[in-house]
Design a binder for these strands. Structure first.
Lengths: 257, 257
DNA sequence: AAAGAAAATGCAAACTTTTGAAAGAATTTT
DNA sequence: AAAATTCTTTCAAAAGTTTGCATTTTCTTT
């Protein structure tokens, strides 16, 4: 190196330094010799590179920084019934075909489903769930987030504002989570704003699938979304009681377990 | 190069300069010798090229910039000029008061600002940035996400769908990021959908603050959002040129640095 | 075609940034 | 703990930039 006839500009030096760093480290003395500049200048260049996040200073030299630290994305709280939820999601996945336009609701039951969507092609995915969106950020599908007020507890976007976007979209199949589920009242949740969003989604969606693990069945929550009539299919696990299966079938709801 | 007997027109020189720059850099002295003109003329040509966004001046020479200006991937951008961005964000923070209703745009310059908002109380924060939303998830403020199509590169929600929510909200102060900034065209970005969202936000916001580090100034990108008239205040770092300060003041834009 | 206006160019003085050297503080090694 | 190395700060010289002005070139107008 250093067949430099003329003085180098700072940017040239910086890229040469990066090249010299390669994968490993270089000392100030080495770089100073290679670039034919004083050590003070090397330090200054290194400082600039560090500000740009391209290199990191260490005592006596510098190291290349590879790919800058990946941002802290949403973290998932380790879940109850994780295995059941995953198997419920697998059943739901079978109803999703290439080119579908689907809605993913919030909730820990829907999240595993979001992770499986790489097996489908060219989906349009509409969601109000920040967690699902974070999962799908890197995917190849088209991703649309409902706007609205952020609800910290469920990490979803809820309330009247969500209505506007929902009403302009055509949703083929909606996959809904829930806090409570009863045959009389259908799905219910703790927050009225969230219930409202669920309701307008269900009303507009072509087909509505409710994913619910058996621990929530028979337990009503505070705010009800729509009625049992808005639901086409309930997808749940094997622990569901035969009595409930019959009740659902009487209400013309398909049930998968 | 250029054994030119007759004198060259400025446009001819400029294209020769661009050719000489190639992908790399050239010094003023080199260019002056190659083109048989004084260094003063080279500087003037380079200045003109810079205004056109085709080259970027650096001390002692110039580098070629590709057009349209490419957008670095998000994680790369995060570390770039990190210190400047933080100090820009600190200046912007002073314009945010308790109970304000503010908009946070996408971009790595706005992100540090999101992190500082704990020092204010009872804000209503509207944003189209997933990263900003992730930062603000735990905060006490009211958080509203614009809906819309998710754009992976910038991790923002963009496009026509965003318009609906923006139009129903009252935004007190909007804090905008940008990929490129020129006095002639104002802020510009790489994606038309993103430009669209920026534009409708700026049009509806009471006051518009643009946060831009000096490396982006004078560099236009592909899709322009609104005009310089939509901007009330530009917040930048100390490296801004006095000339630009004057130009902005002539356009009745307040400038903070 | 000549005179005048406008634009471009080169030059030089004042100013700014960058660079290298040196001194003292901080860190690592022996 | 002493020695050696490296880091930070400061300062002056060198290199680069800006600005105003005189000169040349180019364009317009008569």
């Amino acid at each position: 190196m250093s067949n430099c006839k003329r003085k180098l500009l700072s940017t040239e030096r910086e890229s040469l330094i990066l090249k010299a760093l390669g994968e490993g480290v270089s000392t100030i003395t080495e770089l100073s010799a290679q670039l034919n500049v004083s050590e003070a200048t090397v330090r200054r260049d290194l400082h600039s590179l560090e500000e740009q996040g391209k290199a990191k200073r260490i005592h006596g030299g510098a190291v290349r920084v590879k790919f800058p630290q990946t941002e802290p994305i949403f973290t998932e709280k380790a879940g109850f019934h994780a295995q059941e939820k995953k198997s419920i999601a697998e059943k739901a996945l079978e109803y999703i075909e290439d080119n579908d336009s689907i809605y993913l609701d919030g909730g820990s039951t829907i999240l595993p489903l979001a992770r499986m969507l790489d097996s489908r092609k060219n989906l349009t995915i509409v969601t109000n769930s920040m967690m699902a969106a974070a999962e799908l950020m890197e995917s190849q599908h088209r991703l649309i987030l409902l706007g609205g007020e952020f609800r910290a507890l469920s990490r979803t976007l809820v309330g009247p504002l969500t209505q506007q976007i929902v009403n302009t979209l055509h949703i083929n199949k909606a996959f809904m989570g829930t806090i409570g589920f009863t045959v009389d009242e259908g799905i219910s949740t703790t927050d009225p704003g969230e219930a409202f969003t669920k309701e307008i989604v269900m009303r507009r969606a072509g087909k509505v699938y409710v994913l619910v693990d058996s621990s929530k069945i028979g337990v009503p929550s505070f705010a009800v979304s729509g009625s049992i009539n808005d639901i086409d299919t309930v997808i749940t696990d094997e622990n569901i009681s035969p009595k409930l299966v019959k009740e659902l079938e009487d209400s013309e709801v398909k049930i998968v377990f």
